Simulated assay, not measured.
Amino acid sequence: MSRLTNVFTFGGPDERPSRWRRLVGMSFGMVYLFYPAADVFSGKVAGARMAWEIAALVSFVVAYLATVLSPRDTETPTRWTLPLLGLTTVMVVVYPLLFGGGWLALPIYMTVVYAMALPPRQALLGVAGMAAVVIGDGLVAGADGGTISMLLLQVTTLSVLFMTVRNTRQLVVQLRKAQSEAARLAAADERLRIARDLHDLLGHSLSLIVLKSELAGRLAGNDAEPVAREVADIESVARQALVQVREAVTGYRRRLLSEEIDGARSALAAAGVALTVRTSGTPLPDDLDELFGWAVREAATNVVRHAHATRCEINLSYGDAGATLEVADNGRAGPYLPGSGLTGLSERVAAAGGSVEAEPAPSGFRLKVVVPSRVPGCPVAV
């Protein structure tokens, strides 16, 4: 009897059990008190015995309701629950022996409490104990075989019914907890997606804004027309970045490889880097096209920020063996520490079943993304 569950609760898994609701639910079961009450008020008993039976009836009702309504936390009994359960059990055993007759219906109440309050194994032991009480007390009180059989049938059927109710309640609680956890994980994944997308989008756009601003500063003293053109480009890139952020937050943006190559060409040209693009094989499927679009954006951003290169090459191939994207530059080769951009790209590619290689080359830096052939219709997570 190490654990107790909530008895007759109707709220969610994180709500305090409503005692009033439990009281209303349990009041329907009071119909079985008709039998001992009929013995008391039918005139069969009188005088001191009647007073004792009324006191016993009141004490049982109080103890029973206190047991049902005793506060408890999920599956941990409080200091009052077990003593009240024991006291009520003693009354159920003793009162039929003292008063007989309709008092033999009391074990039915404890059957319901055991079935709802105890774990299955202990509940079965409690129900078996109540069946033994019905037989033993019934024989001592001189009840006929039909009455004992009827009470045993009610003990059995009600125990099965309320144990099923209890198990259903537990499944509902577990389902609500699982739904809450799934919602929490979905929110965490969405926050991660937004953070990753914002980094990838703004890193590229802001790098281009910085380059345009520096170029505009250098041209400011020479000719107003080139300065105005660069400032216009800065405004255009800033507006585009704002649109991209909004689309990333709402999850609507799709990275097209052709658009990213055009954007990379513009950004690299502003940084004085010549871009060469080579493609071979058949066109990429939509999911790989979007994935490689993110890869080109990240690679171009890194070249603009860190490489100090003059040339950059993008080589793309797609066929039966899978898809390969390689971006290489002739900039400075030095120690390599992966940043959040490459980390996010690696996560995207890994979700597609591919791999990322990013390492210094003999004359610059090389980024290689490989995605092997996949089962047709299997989507890529981007």
Rank of each mutant, 00 (worst) to 15 (best):
F10Q: 09
F10W: 09
G11M: 04
D14V: 10
E15C: 07
S18H: 03
S18F: 10
R19W: 11
R19T: 13
W20A: 15
G29F: 10
Y35W: 13
A37G: 14
A37D: 07
D39A: 13
K44F: 06
G47Y: 08
A48C: 00
M50E: 12
M50Q: 15
M50K: 15
I54C: 12
L57S: 07
L57Q: 09
S59N: 08
S59Y: 01
V61C: 09
V62N: 07
Y64H: 15
T67N: 13
T67R: 01
T67V: 09
V68T: 10
S70K: 10
P71H: 01
R72W: 05
R72L: 13
D73P: 04
T76Q: 07
P77V: 04
R79I: 05
L82T: 07
L82Y: 05
L85D: 09
G86F: 09
V90T: 15
V92C: 13
P96C: 07
F99C: 00
G101H: 09
L106H: 08
P107C: 08
Y109M: 10
Y109C: 05
M110T: 02
M110Y: 04
T111D: 06
V112D: 09
V112T: 12
Y114K: 00
L125W: 05
G126I: 00
A128F: 03
I135M: 10
G138D: 03
G142W: 08
L152D: 05
L153A: 13
Q154C: 04
T157A: 15
T157Y: 03
T157V: 15
L158D: 01
S159Y: 06
V165M: 13
T168R: 14
R169V: 11
V173H: 14
Q174D: 11
L175D: 14
R176C: 12
Q179Y: 08
R184K: 10
A186H: 06
A188F: 00
R196C: 01
R196E: 04
L198S: 06
L198E: 07
D200Q: 13
H204P: 02
H204F: 14
S205N: 03
L206W: 02
S207Q: 13
L211W: 02
S213A: 15
E214H: 11
A224Q: 11
A224N: 00
A228R: 14
E230T: 04
S236N: 06
R239V: 02
Q240E: 02
Q240W: 01
A241Q: 00
R246N: 00
E247N: 03
A248D: 00
A248Q: 02
V249E: 05
Y252Q: 07
L257M: 04
L257Q: 09
A264D: 00
L268K: 09
L268F: 01
A269V: 02
A271D: 07
A274S: 14
V277Y: 12
S280H: 12
P285S: 08
L288T: 07
L291V: 02
W294H: 12
V296S: 04
V296A: 02
R297Y: 00
T301M: 11
A307T: 01
H308N: 13
R311A: 11
C312K: 05
E313R: 14
L316S: 04
S317Q: 12
G322N: 02
G322H: 02
E326N: 04
D329A: 11
G339N: 09
L342A: 04
G344D: 15
S346T: 15
R348S: 11
A350Q: 12
V356W: 04
A361K: 00
P362N: 09
V375M: 06
V382E: 06
